[in-house]
Simulated scan of single mutants.
Amino acid sequence: MPGRSPATAPAAVDVDALLADPGTRIVVCCGSGGVGKTTTAAALGVRAAEAGRKVVVLTIDPARRLAQSLGLTELDNTPRPVVDVGADGGSLDAMMLDMKRTFDEVVLAHSTPEKAAQVLENPFYQAVSSSFAGTQEYMAMEKLGQLRAEADRDGTWDLVVVDTPPSRSALDFLDAPKRLGSFLDGRFIRLLMAPAKAGGRAYLKVFSVGANIAAATLSKVLGGQFLTDVQTFVAALDTMFGGFRERADVTYALLKEPSTAFVVVAAPERDALREATYFVERLEAEGMPLAGVVVNRMQTLAAPGLSGSRASAAAEQLEDRADDADTTAPGPALTPALLRLHASLAEAATRHEGHVKRFVAAHPGVAVSTVPAAATDVHDLEGLRAVGAALATG
Results as ranks from 00 to 15, higher is better:
Phe279Lys: 06
Gln146Met: 10
Thr260Asn: 07
Leu255Phe: 02
Gly305Pro: 02
Phe124Asp: 03
Thr370Gln: 11
Met298Lys: 14
Gly186Glu: 10
Glu353Ser: 14
Lys357Tyr: 00
Gly354Val: 12
Leu147Tyr: 06
Ala170Val: 12
Asp172Ala: 14
Asp326Tyr: 09
Asp104Glu: 13
Ala17Glu: 07
Pro332Thr: 13
Pro2Glu: 07
Asp326Arg: 15
Ala329Val: 15
Phe359Ala: 01
Val295Ser: 05
Asp93Gln: 07
Asn296Ile: 02
Pro62Asp: 09
Arg190Phe: 01
Val82Gly: 04
Glu257Asp: 15
Ser344Glu: 15
Pro6Ala: 09
Ser69His: 04
Asn77Gly: 01
Asp238Lys: 11
Gln68Ser: 13
Ala67His: 01
Glu137Leu: 09
Arg321Asn: 04
Val85Cys: 05
Val378Arg: 08
Ala302Lys: 11
Val28Trp: 05
Asp229Ala: 05
Glu353Gln: 15
Tyr252Ala: 14
Val356Leu: 03
Pro336Lys: 05
Val368Glu: 08
Ser129Gln: 12
Ala311His: 07
Gly224Met: 13
Gln299Lys: 14
Ala343Cys: 08
Leu174Glu: 03
Ala117Cys: 01
Val295Pro: 11
Val85Asp: 05
Ala349Glu: 07
Thr393Phe: 00
Asn122Cys: 04
Ala361Cys: 08
Met141Cys: 13
Phe244Thr: 11
His355Cys: 01
Glu257Ala: 15
Lys220Asn: 05
Ala361Glu: 15
Tyr278Met: 02
Asp76Trp: 14
Asp21Ser: 04
Val371Leu: 09
Gly365Lys: 08
Pro6Gly: 13
Ser169Gly: 10
Gly287Met: 09
Ala267Arg: 11
Gly23Ile: 05
Ala346Tyr: 08
His352Pro: 06
Pro123Ile: 07
Ser169Cys: 02
Glu269Pro: 02
Pro195Glu: 08
Ala49Asp: 06
Arg358Phe: 00
His363Tyr: 13
Val221Leu: 15
Ala253Ser: 14
Arg187Val: 11
Val107Met: 03
Gln231Ala: 12
Leu255Asn: 01
Ser111Ala: 15
Ala12Gly: 11
Val360Thr: 14
Gly308Thr: 04
Leu222Ser: 04
Ala211Arg: 00
Leu97Thr: 08
Gln136Ile: 00
Glu286Thr: 04
